[in-house]
Design a protein around this nucleic acid. Structure first.
Lengths: 222, 222
DNA sequence: ATAGAAAAATGACTTATAGTCATTTTATGA
DNA sequence: TCATAAAATGACTATAAGTCATTTTTCTAT
């Protein structure tokens, strides 16, 4: 009682440390999960694999995540956050909308090359069959991060309209179209590595640039 | 021996009937599987569910399909074939490329509205984690059907170039871009029904038409 | 019609894994 | 140092994919 103000202070510190430790452990689990999912995919990774590779018992994993799906979707959010960070860097330049979009595409493509497996997680996590097994809260945070990425596109397009290089149009709608186009192309390429070349016969980088050209052509003032 | 030529004939008939019966049973399984997958999704449908609902034992299912994934991917191929049929109908009109593309989009959207669950199957079946558990042969046939759909777009764009309404461009590449854009948008809408409206705030039909307008704007001769 | 062979179907069984929970271990605080 | 709370454990339960020895049905030759 006498030292209650100290105690409160130290209790606060303790509590903070506890939270930090919890977060650290959660991150360790996610790191192990990332390795396992990257290596063997969602279906063929077991929760025990993940537990083993971070030196915990299976039951412990369930103290941090409600289900295998929740681990997976948490990883997706991490992937989206990484992507968002990269996109923000590219978008911060003082260029016009036009040039920023090319830069964003370059960043996006580079991110894809370095993080193909993350794209697979994003792709599968977006499916209703996975999502139905995940809490609304977790979904919301992933949706918000994806939304932030779209917001960056939105800003770039807005800038282009303001500067007069793009025609008057709904930037949010345009951003969604561009996002869908680029993701659709990547997904198509990701779908089947074996048959890929023979289906399209076009290099991904080339078709991505062409698609942006086409998009900008439609967006520019004639 | 004496009647060997008759026997051969009747044997051929018998064999044909056998094949027909096999196909019919396979189709019955696929029909039951469709209902089950539509209702409960991939993860929460069991092979026993499928077997029960078409009055067969679980083991019998495995005489017709190598795995649950193969049933699923076979359904995807069926879905793509339906879509292809619809698209062919729309594309057979004697219109110019421009108008055909609008028609194709309308057909595609209508198909989506009537077959949302098929889209989910197509979406999930396209994922490497599902595909890795499916035989190359089966994958090839699904890839070919998807390819045929793209071919229809390709033809329409070619026609537009020939008639002079579209600029000189690689029609195959343009077809892939259009396909990716439309699928990307639908996927985005399919991803999360709960948050959908608040993310995009745009009706799907409207944004699909807008995206085609933008695409055509980029494609048309200025 | 019938026996014997071939084809098709069966479902109990094996194996694997997600998720639980009573018990044990570790950390905290007086 | 002990009591209490928090964290971790892993044996256990439940469920479901896929197998295969056995049974049932269909076909064929006489």
């Amino acid at each position: 009682m006498t030292y209650s103000h100290f105690m409160n202070e130290s209790q606060t510190l303790k509590a903070e440390r506890k939270i930090k430790e919890k977060t650290a452990r959660r991150d360790a689990i996610l790191k192990a999960a990332k390795d396992a999912f990257f290596k063997n995919g969602f279906m063929e990774t077991t929760v025990e694999d993940i537990a083993d590779s971070c030196g915990l018992a299976k039951g412990t994993i369930y103290l941090y995540f409600k289900s295998k799906e929740e681990i997976y979707v948490s990883l997706m959010t991490k992937g989206l956050e990484l992507l968002k960070k990269e996109m923000l860097k590219a978008a911060s330049a003082e260029y016009d909308g036009d040039k920023i979009l090319y830069q964003l595409l370059a960043i996006y493509y580079k991110f894809y090359l370095k993080n193909r497996k993350y794209f697979r997680i994003i792709f599968l996590s977006s499916h209703p069959d996975v999502r139905r097994r995940v809490s609304g809260e977790l979904l919301k945070s992933s949706v918000e991060t994806a939304n932030d990425c779209l917001g960056i596109l939105n800003d770039a397009i807005k800038r282009g309209i303001k500067s007069g290089s793009f025609k008057q149009t709904d930037p949010w709608q345009a951003a969604n179209i561009l996002w869908a186009m680029v993701n659709g192309l990547i997904m198509k390429y990701e779908t089947d590595p074996i048959y890929r070349e023979e289906i399209v016969g076009i290099k991904l980088e080339k078709i991505l640039i062409e698609s942006l050209n086409l998009f900008l052509d439609g967006l520019r003032i004639k």
